[in-house]
Design a protein around this nucleic acid. Sequence first.
DNA 1: CCATTTCATGAATAGCATTCATAAACTATT
DNA 2: AATAGTTTATGAATGCTATTCATGAAATGG
Lengths: 243, 243
Amino acid sequence: MGTKERRQREVAEREALFLDVALELVREESLLNLQMSRIAEKAEYAVGTLYLHFSSKEDLLLALVTRTVKDYYDLTRKASEWKAPSRDRMFAVGVGDLVFVKKHPDYFRIVQYILCEVAWNAASEQRKQAFHDANRPGLKLVSTIVEDARRSGDLEIDGQTAEELALGVWAICSGYHNFTHAEGLLNHLSITEPYFLMCRHLQNLLDGYHWKPIAGPAEPQAISALIERIKKEVFPEDLCNAA
Amino acid sequence: MGTKERRQREVAEREALFLDVALELVREESLLNLQMSRIAEKAEYAVGTLYLHFSSKEDLLLALVTRTVKDYYDLTRKASEWKAPSRDRMFAVGVGDLVFVKKHPDYFRIVQYILCEVAWNAASEQRKQAFHDANRPGLKLVSTIVEDARRSGDLEIDGQTAEELALGVWAICSGYHNFTHAEGLLNHLSITEPYFLMCRHLQNLLDGYHWKPIAGPAEPQAISALIERIKKEVFPEDLCNAA
DNA sequence: CCATTTCATGAATAGCATTCATAAACTATT
DNA sequence: AATAGTTTATGAATGCTATTCATGAAATGG
């Protein structure tokens, strides 16, 4: 009964096509202007067919994010497998965000939107579940770093689980992505390099976790140098053009 | 020519009424179901009149947020005027968030939505400007705490401006508010008390800033006690019922 | 009291997400 | 290979709401 399998494959390919097309449209004309009918048209299918795959527009966006989350965790994996002290690996996870935004400039924008109650509740239960499932391996990677750190004595966890510590890092990243998307918000604070500042605050947080070796009040140059080193050593294939 | 002034006052009152009604509707039936026609109806005006005030639905939401931001900074003011070490005052700003969500459970939800590119770009330039202006005094208060800390030697700023330091705190808070709004996201990580964890990570960040007196790996009980003390001493009138 | 400007109204418009009756394609059976 | 039955694809029609704008009412001022 190979027919059924071929069919399944075709359906999966079509779904992938829809997501590809949706992403292209977001890139071309922003999330604001994304229309279901345009997606169908560009993919050369009927709107109804699109709705055979996704229960709503938000459902499609969550699917898109869920698919991309795997690419994102590829960077996390590279960070976690890097031959370096646990603290630097953890920091590299954050630098991964920085690298990822260059490659997928719309990803965090869509995440921000989809995590809003309004959008989140418009997605199907299955998609939400799939999103959670897709996140699990990434969280595992980060937890592994934390556990390594503990084992090697770099980190004495003060009653916080690995996931909890990771959430602090995630919160800072998430917060900065948010601010960055509201045009004018940061200019207003004369902040021109939000992602660099994000890195500094990640370092500060890790210092606050007492994660050795403590960076202390490092000069900006030192952090810049570390960021550059991580980009080259950990994410050599993920850097865009002449960034 | 008092006529003109009376008229202005009336218009301002009507605008306030619209915002009151909008907030009530959000509370009653969620942001997702907020409809412009319902707002107009409930306020006993025509839809067209509503659009005399707000250029779009998002414009109205940004106006709502902008109005409430002042209440929010009342808490920040209390925190910054508290007779306590600068570090505790800074922490109290974060605890203010916690107190504020109880009182205005929809505020951060709306902020999260309005800061999404999609919504942000649908608001008028004037509103965005007003939002920035409304935020300035709050930022000033926080900067004052940072400068006090520097003056008293509690904090040796390592090349970061007061605003930059404050942004780190803001990022953590903002990140946590986000996670909290995506139903199921944190349960999935077995995190049941996000705002308590937020407070811990704020402490960790302040430690990372080397803001004296360093809290170190404080037991949860100590942080809980401090939170409770701040609630009672700093925000006595802002606590809801038997929270 | 009339002319003119300003303001308020809500029915009409318009944009899109979503549905669903219909047709096409495919599968199984004789 | 013809037929009946089942599954899948279609896109015109629906429906919901934000937004507009022609119309009339009210205020202003001479």
